[in-house]
Each structure stands twice: as structure tokens, then as C-alpha cells.
Simulated scan of single mutants.
Amino acid sequence: MFGFEYTGILGLILLVANIWAIVKIFQSGATTGSKVLWIVLILLLPVIGLILWFLMGPK
């Protein structure tokens, strides 16, 4: 019963974090190819892509 509620909240948090990361990627001074690569990675692998971007993306 409680599992669905927590899953929904975690999913919403993940969605907001992914949108925030994509906006930050668009605002960055990186090359277009690099931006596209990060955005595709975040869209295809939302959790892993977000973690990788957080650790390796912004400098």
C-alpha cells in the first residue's frame, strides 16, 4: 500500500532533477555535441545518467 506512494514521490523527484540537469546542460558553455550526448544519456538512463552528469559533467 505504501510502496506506490513512495514510488510516485521518488519518480517525481527524479523527473524534477532530470529537468533541472537538462536546463543546466543547455545553459552551459559546452560544445553542442557534448550537450547532446549528456541530454541523450540522461533521457535514456535517467538515474545513472543523472549521477554521471553530477559527478563528471559540471566543472
Rank of each mutant, 00 (worst) to 15 (best):
F2P: 09
F2L: 14
F2N: 15
F2E: 14
G3R: 15
G3Y: 14
F4M: 14
F4Q: 13
E5N: 13
E5Q: 14
Y6R: 12
Y6T: 13
T7M: 13
T7F: 11
G8D: 11
I9V: 15
L10G: 00
L10M: 13
L10S: 10
G11L: 04
G11D: 12
G11Y: 06
G11R: 09
L12S: 14
L12F: 09
I13S: 03
L14P: 05
L14G: 03
L15Y: 12
L15T: 10
A17M: 11
A17V: 01
A17T: 01
A17G: 02
N18W: 00
N18L: 00
I19R: 05
I19K: 08
I19Q: 04
W20F: 03
A21V: 03
I22H: 03
K24H: 07
K24L: 05
I25G: 00
I25R: 01
S28P: 10
G29Q: 11
G29H: 06
G29V: 04
A30V: 07
T31W: 00
T31R: 01
T32W: 06
T32Y: 04
T32C: 02
T32Q: 08
G33P: 01
S34G: 02
S34V: 06
S34N: 11
V36D: 05
L37C: 09
L37I: 03
L37T: 10
W38F: 09
I39S: 04
I39L: 06
V40W: 09
L41S: 07
L41A: 12
L41N: 08
I42N: 01
L44S: 08
L44R: 08
L44G: 05
L44K: 13
L45E: 06
L45H: 07
L45Y: 10
P46G: 11
P46L: 03
P46R: 02
I48F: 15
G49P: 10
G49F: 06
G49N: 10
L50M: 04
L50R: 00
L50I: 01
L50K: 01
L50E: 02
I51Q: 04
L52A: 13
L52Y: 15
W53F: 15
F54G: 05
F54T: 07
L55V: 11
L55T: 12
L55E: 08
M56D: 06
M56Y: 15
G57W: 02
G57D: 04
G57N: 02
P58A: 13
K59L: 10
K59Q: 11
K59A: 07
K59W: 11
